[in-house]
Design a protein around this nucleic acid. Sequence first.
DNA 1: CAAGAGATCATCT
DNA 2: GATGATCTCTTGA
Length: 189
Amino acid sequence: MKLNRDFYNQPILQVAQQLLGKFLVRKCRGRKIAGKIVETEAYVGLKDKASHASRGRTKRTEIMFGQAGHAYVYMIYGMYYCLNIVTGREDYPAAVLIRAIETPLEGGTRESRLQAGSGPGKLCQYFRIDKKINGLDLTGNVLWIEDRGIKIPKSRITRAKRVGVDYAGEYKNRLWRFYIKDSRFISKT
DNA sequence: CAAGAGATCATCT
DNA sequence: GATGATCTCTTGA
């Protein structure tokens, strides 16, 4: 059920695709929050100008250079957090951004149920993910990812350009965004 | 509906 | 001192 280190040690583009259909689970104050991952993006290596790691190994990006299977959480635009999963071998910076999660909310309007996890900032609010999660080992029991037996066939996975990285030169055109084709929970744009 | 502005701060120059 | 791996709200057609 719970994904182990071997899963996260695979090549990043494989991890990014295989995370689709898996469940992110968070234990928080005695409660469990869970939802199905439906959209991811890969940030790959030192040359990827869209990746924070392209500026080298700094205090902030250190975690991306570390062991696979850890969480990289950073604050963006002064108000939102983004959750990434570190992959690949040590000293090679690679991480998968979790962009959208299907959130099984009860109550509220149909629209609010659909949108609670459809975006990297929003899903962090929903899962109560903040700076304290940064560096956390995902093989532990606070935050982890489970395989619940759902397999997404290749034919149902869409590959696309990443969102919000127009400044990244040629790397802005890399098809390193993956999402489940028919999901209604995909982030905007 | 689409486009634009503003919120707000950690990180790097 | 500038700039985002974003989101929400406002404006206007």
